[in-house]
Computed example of a mutant assay.
Amino acid sequence: MPAAPRSTPASASASACAALRAALLDAPPVTVNSVPDLGRAVFVGSGDSLASGLIATEFGHRALSAGDVTWSQTLPAACDTLVGISHSGTSGATVRALRMARDAGLKTVAITSQASSPLADTADEVRLVPTLRVEEEVPCAGHVMLAQGVAAVCGVDTTPFNQALAQSLDGVRATVDAHVRDLPGSAPAAVSVLSLPELCSGADFWVLKLIEACGLAVRTVPLEESGHVDYFIGPQAHLTLQLMGPHGRSRFDRLAEALRTTGQTVCQVDTRHLTDPSAPDAAVLRDLATAVAGTWFAHGAALRWGRPPFRGGAVNMDARHIKLDS
């Protein structure tokens, strides 16, 4: 029997694009109600869920790692409502953080896809998001729905988002494929992801997916902080990914020029037209599309560099170490 054809970055992104589009168009929209009297809210989660929570910073709230609350045994100062985010509703640190808040008399909210879960059982109010039925080698579907749930809790009408995001995916894929083709042929020693706060959720998600897919050390850096220190990185190969939104283009360009003079590879990803900039709540949609782009870029980079996602099965994926124990 002939061997199955080897997946290429372009074929992988085409397959992922078709699957995600079908899932988005088939799924019910996220119709979560906003939370009355949310007050000064802190959104907590871990991993992909924390990236989803960062959407709330666009609306004046805060987002923290659930572990920072749980393992320090300290609730955030000046917090009226603690919002826990977990697709499964079983992330141990997030459930424990919500229990701490409940016991302290704070208002608690759960954003999850599982109505019968420890997280939902702990919360005063539960906001359920649908599950996207899609097979993914490097996952982003859970984040796409949870981030919509976060936006909805903050007052955004997310009803049209599935349709709008589905319509944008061909353009997202074209952008990703072009940048993957321009990558060096071998993996760098490490990767930096730069952004301004308007893309903090999407940038954080790029970091997570690059780590999962490529097994590399990856960090997220505020644009100006990179300008102060990153030109000292070397002499090992380093890749800097600049995620650019509507603001700061001249600063991104000046920094890219400086970093290239030190031998670094700089990839500028313009996210401004990944989605329709005139759509309602265009900034949230752009952040979601940026996250999807990061997932496909990470998978494409892994294929280009010969680094199978999740270290080719070397990583135990049962995740028991982060789940709520008995």
Rank of each mutant, 00 (worst) to 15 (best):
Asn162Asp: 10
Ser113Ala: 15
Ala78Trp: 15
Glu135Ser: 03
Pro130Gly: 14
Ala97Leu: 12
Leu128Val: 11
Arg99Tyr: 01
Ala115Gln: 15
Gly84Phe: 03
Val138Ser: 03
Thr108Asn: 01
Ala164Tyr: 03
Gly89Tyr: 12
Val126Ser: 11
Ala93Cys: 15
Val126Cys: 04
Glu125Met: 14
Leu98Cys: 08
His143Pro: 00
Thr94Cys: 07
Leu98Asp: 11
Val153Arg: 11
Ser86Ile: 07
Ala110Tyr: 12
Thr94Ile: 06
Val109Pro: 14
Thr81Gly: 04
Met100Arg: 08
Val138Trp: 04
Leu132Gly: 04
Val156Pro: 09
Leu128Ile: 07
Glu137Ile: 14
Ser86Lys: 09
Arg127Ile: 01
Leu132Thr: 02
Thr158Met: 01
Ala97Thr: 12
Leu75Thr: 04
Ala164Met: 06
Leu98Val: 15
Pro160Cys: 01
Thr122Cys: 14
Phe161Ala: 07
Gln148Pro: 06
Gln167Val: 01
Ala104Lys: 09
Val109Ala: 14
Gly105Met: 15
Glu125Leu: 09
Arg99Trp: 15
Thr108Gln: 06
Cys79Asn: 04
Ile111Val: 10
Thr90His: 12
Ile111Glu: 02
Arg99Gln: 15
Leu146Trp: 13
Val109Cys: 13
Ala152Arg: 02
Ser113Gln: 14
Ser117Val: 05
Gly142Gln: 08
Ala166Asn: 03
Leu165Asn: 11
